[in-house]
């Protein structure tokens, strides 16, 4: 009896050591086409960033990126999100294939010039962190249907919009791999760990 217990314990120990980490989930609907699984992907988009550069899906070719939705005049959760996104920016400074993409959900007010000033004041470079503006409905649509994030106008809200504080992690195939609360430091810590896990998939 005793031997069995020791055996079970040893097996348990060995299996826990060799256990490989589970890969990150892949969000959204999937379907099988001709025997291949087709996953939900970020739809095609075209926006303009703080340097007037055109930003499309191709901008993030062979890149992992973190996306969020905000607006510069927001006084509720956005400043906290930007504080946390700045942490992500600083933590990924030496990782060449990680980029950040912040969409304005008030694109009529948040012009290129205003986003340029905002990014400068935050002290960040457009090489790694794009602040984009564009057609409002396109931004709302991509938020909801591609990133599964809430973003819409609501005049009853103090700032005139409702939006989630989510940070979305997108892989090199433009698939959504993680969703985090960008207003919570611990959740952003989890994002930083997941970025490393995701990069391992490409090693």
């Amino acid at each position: 009896m005793r031997k069995i217990i020791v055996f079970v314990a040893v097996v348990g120990l060995i299996s826990s050591c060799t256990k490989t980490e589970k890969p990150l989930p892949i969000f959204g609907q999937r379907e099988v086409v001709n025997g291949d699984t087709v996953y939900h992907k970020i739809a095609n988009f075209q926006f303009v960033d703080q340097d007037s550069a055109i930003i499309t899906n191709d901008t993030f070719k062979d890149q992992i990126y973190v996306s969020d939705f905000f607006f510069t005049s927001c006084r509720t959760i956005c400043p906290i999100m930007k504080t946390q996104m700045l942490r992500v920016y600083e933590a990924t400074a030496d990782i060449p294939d990680v980029k950040l993409l912040s969409h304005s959900i008030d694109p009529e007010y948040d012009t290129v010039a205003l986003l340029h000033d905002f990014a400068n004041r935050l002290g960040v470079s457009s090489d790694r962190w794009h602040f984009v503006t564009g057609v409002k409905d396109s931004i709302y649509k991509i938020a909801q249907t591609s990133y599964f994030a809430t973003a819409m106008e609501d005049k009853s809200e103090p700032d005139g919009f409702i939006h989630s504080g989510a940070f979305l992690l997108v892989d090199k195939e433009q698939r959504l791999r993680g969703k985090y609360d960008g207003t919570k430091e611990e959740d952003v810590n989890r994002l930083l760990v997941d970025i490393k896990r995701l990069r391992k998939e490409y090693e």
Binding site: R75, L86, F118, R121
Partner: peptide, 15 residues
């Protein structure tokens, strides 16, 4: 504290 931070340090040259 959303903008000026709990630490009172503000954020970049924004706040």
């Amino acid at each position: 504290s959303n903008c000026h931070q709990k630490s009172g340090k503000g954020l970049g040259l924004l706040y």
